[in-house]
């Protein structure tokens, strides 16, 4: 009997040890600082990707500054300004949604995320109409109408479609990330104590905003 009791005790102890060990590993597996560091390293590769395109833009703009000025007149400053304000506002709602979650206001946080997605969608719809209008005027890469123009204008449109297209792709990816975050807040895997995935998605979203801050004056505001 006594040996049985002893055995039971050891088993209990073992379970306790196991449990604490389990807790310990769980703690090690969750390193928010490292997660954020990984995200920042990724964002910096994005920065260099767009940075390379910006350097190319600078070189071409210097070479064909006159053609760039003429080509840029075709772009709609109003739509560009509206899209800038939309993206800045979506960045605000993203940042506010994190604060709301930290304060335990789950519903407010989800609603703010939905407005971020909504604003991103609004941006893409504007972009769609902008590009459609260009296509309707025969301005798309490789079109006969575009190829008749000066070399610098062809390059301007090449860069415009490449850079705003790549940026638009980032907007779509950002929207998908935010939708995942909404789903995970609803399911509870992102909560007031554990929201690093949300923070990292937010960082991605702000990067999208950051790139647009430079794209907007470089393409729309050269008159």
């Amino acid at each position: 009997m006594s040996s049985n009791a002893e055995l039971e005790l050891t088993q209990n102890e073992m379970q306790e040890v196991e449990a604490s060990h389990h807790e310990h590993t769980e703690h090690v597996h969750r390193d928010d600082f490292a997660s954020k560091m990984g995200m920042w390293l990724f964002l910096l590769t994005e920065l260099l990707l767009f940075g390379g395109l910006f350097i190319l833009y600078m070189a071409y703009r210097f070479q064909y500054s006159h053609d760039f000025h003429i080509a840029a007149k075709e772009l709609n400053v109003g739509v560009g300004t509206l899209n800038t304000i939309i993206l800045l506002t979506s960045s605000l709602s993203m940042a506010l949604s994190i604060i709301a979650l930290q304060k335990g206001k789950k519903n407010l946080s989800i609603n703010l995320l939905w407005s971020t997605v909504g604003l991103a969608g609004f941006f893409m719809v504007n972009k769609f109409f902008e590009w459609s209008a260009k296509f309707a005027h025969g301005l798309y890469p490789g079109s006969a109408h575009l190829l008749e123009k000066e070399k610098g204008e062809i390059i301007f449109y090449g860069m415009y479609f490449t850079m705003t297209g790549l940026h638009g792709l980032h907007v779509l990816i950002g929207m998908a990330l935010i939708l995942v975050v909404i789903y995970r807040i609803k399911s509870g895997t992102i909560n007031a104590d554990k929201y690093i995935v949300m923070e990292n998605s937010g960082l991605y979203w702000h990067l999208v905003d950051l790139i647009w801050i430079f794209l907007f004056p470089l393409f729309y505001l050269i008159h």
């Binding site: 960045s91 937010g202 702000h206 990067l207 905003d209 801050i213 907007f216 004056p217 505001l221 050269i222």
Partner: peptide, 22 residues
């Protein structure tokens, strides 16, 4: 014009990086 536009863009990005990106 381009220099002023770039300076404003840099100021804007400093705000975004410092505050929005924490």
């Amino acid at each position: 014009t381009i220099i002023v536009a770039m300076i404003i863009a840099i100021i804007k990005s400093i705000f975004v990086i410092n505050i929005f990106m924490h």
